[in-house]
Simulated assay, not measured.
Amino acid sequence: MGNKESVKPVKRHFEYHNHLLDDATKEMNEWTGENKVVEIHLFSMFSEVFKHHDLDDAETLFIVGTKETTPSLEAVSSAPVKPWLFSRVFAVLGASFVLLALLFLGFRSNNAVPGMIFIGSLTVPFSLMIMFFEINVFRNISVYQLMAVFLVGGILSLVATMILYSLIPSGNGVSWESALIVGFIEETAKMLVIAFFVNRFHLNYIFNGLLIGAAIGAGFAVFETAGYTGQYGLVTLLMRSWQAIGTHTIWSAIMGAAIILAKDRHEPVTGGNMVAPKFLRFYLLAILLHSGWDWNAPFDVLDILYLQQWALIAIGWLAIFVLINAGLREVRTLQGQRILKNSQLGG
């Protein structure tokens, strides 16, 4: 009896958190236009990471986005996405950083430091960008386009940020008011660049928005981390590297998907789209996530094991999973519309 009674509080605790997760995904999913709970299956989604894949598998994933390699709508997969290549990219970059660190520590070679800063800044954001590249089931963005967005878009977003900082006083960046202004400035700067590339490449799908946003956010993160490391040292690099799993790359991916949700299909992004509820909700979420990250909260408990950061990372990824679900739903809807149209024409 004692064991059964002790299990009940644990069960209730689990059910409470499961209910909380369902409520959160349902609320965010309503922002995308569907009033349903989104089930998140992490082990299933990342199951391919632990399986063997040869070089041909990797090269096949990269050979996309050209006229010959972009699939028709009918050939696009609506099955749950299962990215894996990003983990190999992460392993290569991580191993490169370790080798450079050994070179620095073993031979006291300062020549290794620039490489450590570059590779360390690159590892997590770039790997995340590759993950979003993999899950773009439309396969309509090439590696060349992606790298252009990553490099040029990342730098343009920094330029836009500096312009906005020169126009809007931001304070010290750690009080809640200042953190909110910083979040607004940086996310708005990235949003403007994302919208530019969405129009530049005539993109129309949620997965496209996720990828373009992630690429610009990753570029921003890499250059920002490298800059901060140059100022404050390698400890900053290590801290910002692991934290990059839940910062600029996913915040920008959220905004990229939101831009696609708000705009009319096959039409360019306009100012009117920027005030649409479908965009504003996710845009404000990105700003709040960024602001919460920068805010020096007056609660000591949040400093324990970086609870503040982990909570914000969890919320950000929750939004990403909801948007991935919306992207797959979009594929099924478009394919259904195409089948209906073809049947009507055939009739």
Results as ranks from 00 to 15, higher is better:
Lys8Tyr: 14
Val10Pro: 02
Leu21Gly: 06
Ala24Trp: 03
Thr25Arg: 06
Met28Lys: 01
Lys51Trp: 15
His53Asn: 02
Gly65Cys: 02
Gly65Gln: 04
Thr70Ile: 07
Val76Gly: 09
Arg88Cys: 04
Phe90Glu: 01
Gly94Met: 10
Ala101Arg: 12
Phe104His: 11
Pro114Tyr: 11
Gly115Leu: 14
Leu122Thr: 04
Thr123Asp: 02
Met131Leu: 15
Phe138Gln: 00
Val143Pro: 02
Ala148Ser: 13
Gly154Asp: 04
Trp176Thr: 05
Ser178Gly: 13
Gly183Thr: 03
Ala195Gln: 07
Phe196Arg: 08
Asn204Ser: 08
Leu210Thr: 07
Ile216His: 06
Val222Pro: 01
Ala226Ser: 03
Gln231Ser: 08
Tyr232Ala: 10
Met239Phe: 15
Ile245His: 12
His248Thr: 00
Met255Asp: 07
Ala258Asn: 09
Ala258Val: 05
Leu261Gly: 06
Leu261Gln: 05
Ala262Pro: 03
Ala276Met: 12
Arg281Gln: 11
Leu285Pro: 01
Gly292Leu: 02
Trp293Phe: 03
Asp294Met: 13
Ile315Gln: 04
Gly316Val: 03
Trp317Leu: 04
Ala319Ile: 04
Ile320Leu: 08
Val322Asn: 01
Val331Thr: 06
Leu334Lys: 07
Gln337Ala: 07
Leu340Asp: 10
Leu345Arg: 07
